[in-house]
Design a protein around this nucleic acid. Structure first.
Length: 444
RNA sequence: GCGAGUGUAGCUCAGCUGGUAGAGCAUCACGUUGCCAACGUGAUUGUCGACGGUUCGAAUCCGUUCACUCGCUCCA
């Protein structure tokens, strides 16, 4: 099978598995769906929150100089004037009906003629803006227009000084935020890779411009380490793309790209944004956002180094990387082996980390008690239906790294079998040691 | 937004030229089994994506629309 075909196949399998097993559903499905919107089901939300928690822990909780923020989704419209989102994307566009080219009206020499084919058969100019519009208050007129944030970083810049004062942070320090952002993408594509409502995990690091490039290199290294060690990405699964064309204010920018089922795609951007954002907000708000360095009596506009990740894209990358089909022994008539679908998810983000399975329904009571105990420390699931083999396969398909099987000897020897998802090997573990054993295995 | 393809049970799909719906898997119950999708018996499941038209009759033909996939386009 050709690579492209195989990859397409993988995407279809992921979409199907996600729906079937409750990871991700099309939004509003009973009404026919709505383009560019997705719902995270029971297993999906477990995993999504686990990824969020992992990022937050790595970026905020384990660092003294990064503060958290949870800003509103709707901001003052001038925020988007200052950021440039409103003007740059309020373009009037026209399409040539003949050759299908599209032009910005303000860039055309003659607004009645297609510069590509010379046709005069053009559509009426239409306004294109990627920001989602709404109205604040009950009156729906332009004076009350507002926008859902197109990225989570702008409110960080807007609140930067309040955060600094409240926390008494000195440069360099960062502010992180996880939240929804909205864009009216012309054409949402590739499952949850490009949707109109998505979650970003962003951290803006404020520093003295003289150290900007050093901090850029620092965060680049930190983020690569995170993907290698925490999400277990191998070196052939991700790559660094260095921007050749930089925004006028930026000094450096890279993207971390990963191998999605449809090809390489951006997962995270690490950008040196200079003083541009804070300068713009100073200018538009009239508020002086400069920083007073009391150590040397110097006043400066902080430089920003940004790390910006798409949570939904991380989710898709992890899923695609984890999906595997191998073969395993079966007792089905006339068959030696059968296909086994397994998600090799990193245990830290697996929706179910430990499945507790009684070997027989006769053992339900004791096994349920064990499940209740383990549930306090891990994401657990109890299942007693069907044969034990079937239950193992069910767990494989949702990526459960460990199955704990309570059997007929367990009550007597106070031990259970721990079955490994990846190797299918089993190990007898004392119930007293079980929590420690699982914590080590999961990497908590 | 343009072009192409697809849409039938939870999933994968079959339903030829119109006669009002099927398989495998999954799910559930009971029995059996006791560590890798075992077996037996039984059961549940559909506005055939939506709306409209043609027809005595539409999953099937026609139109419109919605969604998904791919290629353009877009992606601050």
């Amino acid at each position: 099978m050709a690579d492209a075909e195989k990859n397409l196949d993988l995407m279809e399998k992921l979409v199907s598995l996600c729906k079937r097993r409750g990871f991700i559903f099309p939004s509003s499905e009973i009404y026919g769906g709505i383009n560019g919107f997705w719902d995270y089901g029971p297993y999906g939300v477990r995993m999504k929150r686990a990824i969020e928690a992992l990022w937050w822990h790595e970026m905020v909780e384990t660092r003294d100089n990064i503060e958290g923020l949870d800003s509103s989704i709707i901001c003052h419209p001038r925020v988007w004037k200052a950021s440039g989102h409103l003007d740059q994307f309020s373009d009037l566009m026209t399409d040539c009906r003949y050759c299908k080219s599209r032009f910005r009206v303000d860039q055309m020499e003659d607004t009645a003629v297609c510069s590509n084919c010379g046709s005069r058969n053009l559509t009426e100019p239409r306004e294109f803006n990627l920001m989602m519009k709404t109205f604040v208050g009950p009156v729906f007129d332009e004076e009350h227009a507002a926008y859902l944030r197109a990225e989570t970083c702008q409110p960080i810049f807007v609140d930067y000084n309040l955060v600094r004062i409240a926390t008494r942070q000195k440069l360099p320090f960062g502010v992180a935020q996880i939240g929804k952002a909205f864009r009216n993408e012309i054409n949402p594509r590739n499952f949850i890779f490009r949707s109109r409502e998505f979650t970003q995990m962003e951290m803006e690091f404020f520093c003295d411009g003289e150290q900007g490039l050093e901090w850029f290199e620092y965060w680049k290294a930190q983020r690569i380490k995170y993907y290698r060690e925490k999400l277990q990405f191998s070196d052939d699964f991700f790559r660094i793309y260095e921007h050749e064309k930089l925004a006028h204010y930026a000094k450096a920018a890279i993207d971390i790209e990963v191998k999605f089922p449809f090809g390489w795609g951006e997962l995270e951007g690490i950008h040196h944004r200079g003083t541009w954002d804070l300068s713009r907000h100073s200018e538009f708000s009239g508020e002086d956002l400069q920083y007073m360095d009391h150590d040397n009596g110097r006043k400066l506009m902080p430089t920003v180094v940004e790390t910006s990740v798409g949570l939904d894209r991380t989710f898709l990358a992890i899923l695609g990387n984890a999906y595997d089909e191998d073969t395993a022994a079966t007792q089905k008539e006339g068959m030696e082996e059968d296909v086994r679908i397994v998600l090799h998810l990193p245990p830290l983000v697996a929706p179910v980390q430990v499945a507790v399975l009684p070997l027989s329904k006769k053992l339900n009571e004791s096994a349920e008690k064990l499940n209740t105990d383990l549930n306090r420390h891990f994401r657990c699931e109890f299942d007693s239906t069907g044969s034990i083999g079937k239950r193992y396969r069910r767990q494989d398909e949702i990526g459960t790294p460990f199955c704990v099987t309570f059997d007929f000897d367990s009550a007597a020897d106070n031990a259970v079998t721990v079955r490994n998802r990846d190797t299918m090997a089993q190990e007898r573990v004392s119930i007293d040691q079980l929590r420690t054993y699982l914590e080590n295995a999961i990497g908590i």
